[in-house]
Nucleic acid binder design. Structure first.
Lengths: 342, 342
DNA sequence: TTGTAGGCGTTATCAG
DNA sequence: CTGATAACGCCTACAA
């Protein structure tokens, strides 16, 4: 375990002052380009690596971005994170990632940790049951930029990156109606979350436009888990007026529901047409392939990280833009095609 | 943007020395418990948060663990990461995560960044084509513990966490043989990686034991992507002596291959029995459900992180244990059951 | 273009 | 049990 070389060591060796070395290493304009060359050369030769803490301590910034997500291990989220990592890495920012596991309590704890780690900025997608935004106030109070993505909150100072969930929900439902469905069930998540309430709103609008009634009993709030899909399926079987269309706000749940319906002898789409959400890889594995909304996860991660970084570098002000909407799209597959026009 | 409170502010207010405040805040045993109480109370009241950099600078450690993975957005990896995050969070370590995107070049760059970030330890699963281990030498030279998981390297000082891939490969193959398969094709990844070469070895052993010939033409090295599965399927159809069994080293690839085979009119398992690897959620979506090897991703992440942390805390020495093997298990489903004994 | 000097906030050592 | 003091390594006024 050798000792670390510091700018002092380099300075001593070259008979220069540490200040000059520091400046040279940071490519300061006021340093003779020749001295610069010599300094950087000996620096690498001596195996010098800049001490981030000393630098951070001095500069009061960390080059670190905090990320809080509900879960790491969902296809969507890991794709988002992949996008963020790409961008952050390119701009030499580090990512500190933590998961709330869908619990506000843990989200609050995570926020606190991030705060103490003094992240330069924070990217958040909130948990299932988060309602208040207090735990993020500390950040805005200290001027740490806050950016919500996908599951966003109405925070006075937070910018958000989303897709148009109303439109997506509308398209999904309108498509089912276009296929002749008249009783469409909607399986969704917590209506505290924009993503779900907005999709529901889109659903409602589509029904309204088509002159179809909005019935409470056709709306199921669940946690959109695998089990929820199975339960939804058995509920459907027990219903008096069985729905002929099904719009589930998450592919993974939709797929488990479809499997259960098929096991129960229903045929898709003829008995019941199904549309999911996310364009998860499983949607092309299930048979019939699942119609869904394509959701730009990686792009969302990239945009979120890039916006934050631009803001931090002063290239762009996030506080002025307070909402960025990404494009999403209905992808029609067999699970919803009643009219067999291929 | 208010000014930060420091231990000096607290000290001044309470007429104590900063040293005492520091000790109290760190729960030092030699401090009067009453003084401690008062100090912590006013600290929270003043909105004090410890400055990690100052602390790190002083202590020469970061409480940060670096993680380098091939990709963030695979079901397996994100599950591993979820496990790591849980453990790290509990022990108040931060995780800095980066992905190599299966390229050595990026892996080297990531390692460098991690090194400069002065992570306390490093968890690595190597890229598709990594061969040399030089880029990790800097860590061991500085005494930074290095732990490989899943895709490991033979590094003199690195500990590794794996499953017994030989055994798993053996079981998968032996199971197919037990179902009456006599020509078993094996689709695998880069043989530079322990996970794939070991599974191949297991495959070989099972054939050997059953007195079946090992044929080069039945081995396909691919990148195990979705496309690779489709190509494998079309290759199978073009073969003179069509295989009656198929062992694919990755569920995702296996599933796409199965779909393609089915589209081509082959029936599974009667024409060809299939076994995958990973127990990915898709394995229970595809029809018939895919027989696979259950692979403890979350556990692997937990064990990896915990071992590293224990080592860092001096609770356990990683250098002495240089290999931890987790349990894996064959899960039999319909894709491989030729004999219909359910 | 380069050097001097002070401080960022903590903690470890030594002394009381 | 508490205090004084000196680092940790870097950056930046200010001075030369």
């Amino acid at each position: 375990m050798e000792k670390e070389t510091t700018i002092y060591d380099i300075a001593k060796l070259l008979n220069l002052s540490p200040a000059t070395v520091s400046r040279a290493l940071n490519d300061h304009p006021a340093i003779n380009s020749n001295t610069k060359r010599i300094i950087t050369a000996t620096a690498t030769e001596m195996g010098y690596r800049s001490n981030t803490f000393a630098s951070n301590l001095r500069r009061q910034r960390t080059n670190t971005i905090g990320v809080i997500v509900p879960r790491l291990n969902s296809n969507f989220m890991s794709t988002v994170l992949a996008g963020m990592e790409k961008v952050a890495n390119k701009s030499s920012y580090n990512l500190i990632i933590s998961q709330s596991l869908e619990s506000v309590k843990k989200e609050v704890a995570n926020a606190k940790t991030m705060f103490n780690s003094r992240v330069d900025g924070l990217l958040v997608s909130v948990a299932y049951d988060t309602e208040k935004t207090d735990h993020f106030d500390a950040f805005t109070k200290k001027g740490v930029p806050l950016l919500f993505f996908d599951r966003v909150l109405d925070h006075k100072q937070g910018t958000s990156i989303v897709i148009d969930n109303v439109k997506a929900g509308y398209e999904a439902t309108a498509h089912l109606i276009g296929q002749g469905c008249r009783r469409i069930m909607h399986v969704t998540g917590s209506l505290k979350r924009n993503v779900y309430i907005d999709r529901l709103e889109g659903y409602r609008l589509a029904l309204l436009e088509a002159g179809l009634p909005y019935e409470e009993e056709l709306i199921r709030m669940t946690d959109l888990s695998e089990e929820a899909g199975i339960e939804a399926a058995s509920h459907i079987q027990s219903m008096a007026g069985r729905p002929d269309g099904l719009f589930i706000a998450n592919d993974f749940c939709a797929v488990s529901c479809m499997s259960a319906l098929k096991r129960a002898g229903l045929s898709i789409p003829s008995d019941i047409a199904v549309v999911g959400f996310n364009n998860d890889p499983v949607s092309t594995v299930i048979e019939p392939n699942l119609t869904t909304i394509d959701y730009p996860g990686e792009k969302m991660g990239e945009v979120a990280a890039q916006s934050l970084i631009n803001h931090l570098n002063g290239t762009m002000n996030i506080q002025t833009t307070n909402r960025i909407v990404l494009h999403s799209e209905l992808i029609v597959r067999e699970s919803s095609l009643k009219s067999a026009i291929f």
